[in-house]
Simulated assay, not measured.
Amino acid sequence: MKLKTFNKPTLIVIAGPTAVGKTKFCLNLAKKYQTSIISADSRQFYRELKIGTAAPTEQELQTVPHYFIAHLSIHDYYSTSRFEQDVLQLLPSLFQQNQVVIMTGGSGLYLDTVCHGIDELPDPDPEIRQYVIALYEKKGIEELRKQLRILDYDYYQKVDIANYKRLMRAIEVSLQTGMPYSKFLQQKRKKRDFEIEKYCLVRPREILFERINRRVDEMMENNLLQEAKQLHPYKKLNALNTVGYKELFQYIEGQITLEEAINNIKVNTRRYAKRQLNWFKRDPNYQYIDLAANEF
């Protein structure tokens, strides 16, 4: 990636699948531009999730200013709309210091929210949320599908009906507002007062999968299991319904062996990487950088 000179405030977006090498790439890029990094990795928002999210090390955080790393607790409510608001409030002060700011992460929805905006959705009502959670825990995902068909058939026809979290959110909003969830999803892009350049880091599939497997092994060596044991009492929190922790929770509960848990983490992380890449491919504005051929 050739360094450019920017005459207008510009947000450089560095996307890519998990384990591709975003952290190292962005650290080098930030040093060259002498600028800051905004993290759009939704798993790294939570301070309790250190090992399993491959968050930047303390040394890396001291090298370059970072924002939105470990700024929340797993007990805090946070959403894409709040992230959008927080980043847009921060950017003017960062652009006063430098014409270039870097934003990076593998959470495509969070990246898109800052770049294009998100439809305004109400914060969840705690009582309604608990009702929907209880509905899922007692009757399973099929009941969620049934309820969504009744509340918002248009959205039911579009949503991934295997994704229980999306089903739950749609039901919550529909019940809370008395309006179909799909009415809030108009997909109107918002105009930003800064330029945006998008890059997606990639590697050959076999190399990426090898890096994923190796990183999981390194996480286990760095006491990921101990971290999971400490977090196990809070396993029902939304922040912990993520790869690396939910598999170890199954081991802790005696459902599978440790070897099976580790293998499942590797398999599920590889699947997650595929989904990330599919998300980024939908946006024609991304320029691709093959790190296997262009180590930065």
Rank of each mutant, 00 (worst) to 15 (best):
K4Q: 09
F6N: 03
K8R: 13
P9T: 02
V13S: 05
T18A: 00
V20Q: 05
K22T: 12
N28Y: 09
N28H: 12
A30E: 00
T35F: 03
S36N: 08
S36A: 15
I38Q: 05
A40N: 11
S42W: 11
F45M: 14
F45R: 10
G52L: 09
G52A: 09
T53R: 03
A55N: 03
P56Q: 11
E58L: 15
L72P: 00
R82H: 13
Q89R: 14
V101C: 04
G108D: 13
L109F: 14
V114H: 02
G117P: 11
D119F: 10
P122T: 10
P124M: 01
P124V: 04
P124C: 09
E137V: 02
K138T: 14
K139N: 12
L144M: 10
R145E: 08
Q147P: 03
L151T: 08
D154M: 00
Y155A: 01
Y156G: 07
D160G: 10
N163P: 05
Y164D: 05
R169I: 05
M179W: 05
F184M: 03
F184I: 01
L185C: 11
F194W: 07
F194T: 04
C200M: 13
F209W: 12
N213M: 04
R214T: 11
V216I: 13
M219L: 11
N222R: 13
Q226I: 10
Q226M: 03
E227T: 07
K236N: 14
N238I: 01
K246E: 10
Y251P: 01
I252N: 03
L258Q: 08
E260Y: 09
E260D: 04
N263M: 03
N263C: 05
I265M: 12
K266F: 09
T269E: 00
T269K: 01
R271C: 00
Y272W: 12
Y272K: 12
K274W: 06
K274N: 13
L277G: 03
F280A: 02
K281V: 07
K281E: 13
R282F: 08
D283A: 04
L291E: 12
A292C: 12
E295F: 11
